[in-house]
Write a protein that binds this DNA or RNA. Structure first.
Lengths: 187, 187
DNA sequence: TTGACGAAACCGTCTAACTGGTATGTTATG
DNA sequence: CATAACATACCAGTTAGACGGTTTCGTCAA
């Protein structure tokens, strides 16, 4: 009835936008705020349209989570390409990718927060487990030292601290921290 | 009308039980499953009774989060008492407390999972921020080295990994990891 | 010792708003 | 014209919370 119908159709864009709105809601207001009504309302897409792209709420969440994992994979791969040293390369890539993702303004806001919120849903944890297992098996030859494990764990800790806004250290302290972590991957 | 009324009144016990039920729901089925109906149903307390103890859902969640923080504080303090070396003591206490909390079967199940789920609600993050800030100010003299920060971050990472079931290493690998972390706090 | 009485600890019901999802359209695009 | 990309209307169940009632408890006077 309204003019909304006459808008140009751009399925990929709309789909992307829906994911971004869901991500924003998750990071800003928590999981309980991610409802179909809220997502459709905040994105200007009708609920019917939303459910056309994602047949159920679960599928929406899974798609969002997958897009975050893809983004993480891409960032890791990019960081690893610029790294000539095989030993500990994946761990450094993981560290640098996580650091890079928090800064980029374009695209999904607050990568960490969204991931966190999604991980609070038990159904999505299995996906994360699988992801970790695949990587730890793939890079068992170069990244299985104790110190590498510590660096990866600390990376998760940084990710967590960023998301919670705690541990807010200065830029120089952060630089020293990261430098030390890189150093640990090379031992 | 039913016999429920005639039960002996034990407000503290009921309150505690409500918190435990909420914690169990959160860890097992995620934040979206923590509803007033679900909590009152699973605990055998009526919704009216639930709302008597916690005037709103938010207050229920905050009370639960506070009880978890108290438990963490107690565990840290206990670990610190057994540690004669001042340098890095808080960091070691934090590490050992987090490791200890995941194992104890009594009381609230799955401390990590509950905390995680609660942290996915933005309103509760401020409480966590405050907690971290207080501690980092209190122990600035003994626990402000880069390596100590790394250990604390890695502790968060372990906490996260435990909760997600990823990084599941063997007992010996875990022992070596912890040993190395303790070592880092002493540098 | 008792018993009255206000407060605290519950219970059961009601509701308006919201939930995920369906069913059925209408429009644009190849 | 067939199909994908939307929108609109609707539904049955659930949600947080308000409300008024009932039972127990602590206290203090008689």
């Amino acid at each position: 009835m309204s003019t909304a119908h006459h808008r140009k159709k751009q399925p990929l864009f709309v789909r992307q936008q829906l994911l971004e709105v869901a991500a924003r809601l998750a990071s800003e207001k928590g999981m309980t705020a991610v409802t179909l009504d809220a997502v459709s309302g905040a994105s200007g897409v009708s609920k019917g349209g939303l459910l056309h792209h994602f047949p159920s709420k679960n599928m929406l969440l899974e798609a969002l989570f997958d897009s975050l994992l893809e983004r993480l994979d891409a960032a890791i791969e990019e960081a690893m390409r610029a790294d000539p040293m095989p030993h500990g390369r994946f761990t450094r890539g993981y560290l640098r990718a996580c650091l890079a993702l928090r800064d980029q303004p374009q695209g999904t806001k607050d990568w960490a927060q969204v991931t966190m919120v999604l991980l609070s849903e038990p159904q999505l944890r299995q996906r994360w487990r699988d992801w970790v297992r695949e990587r730890s098996e793939e890079y068992v030859g170069t990244d299985s030292s104790v110190d590498a494990a510590i660096v990866r764990l600390a990376t998760d800790g940084i990710w967590l601290a960023d998301l919670l806004g705690s541990h807010d250290m200065g830029e120089d302290a952060r630089e020293r921290l990261i430098g030390r972590l890189i150093e640990l991957t090379q031992l």
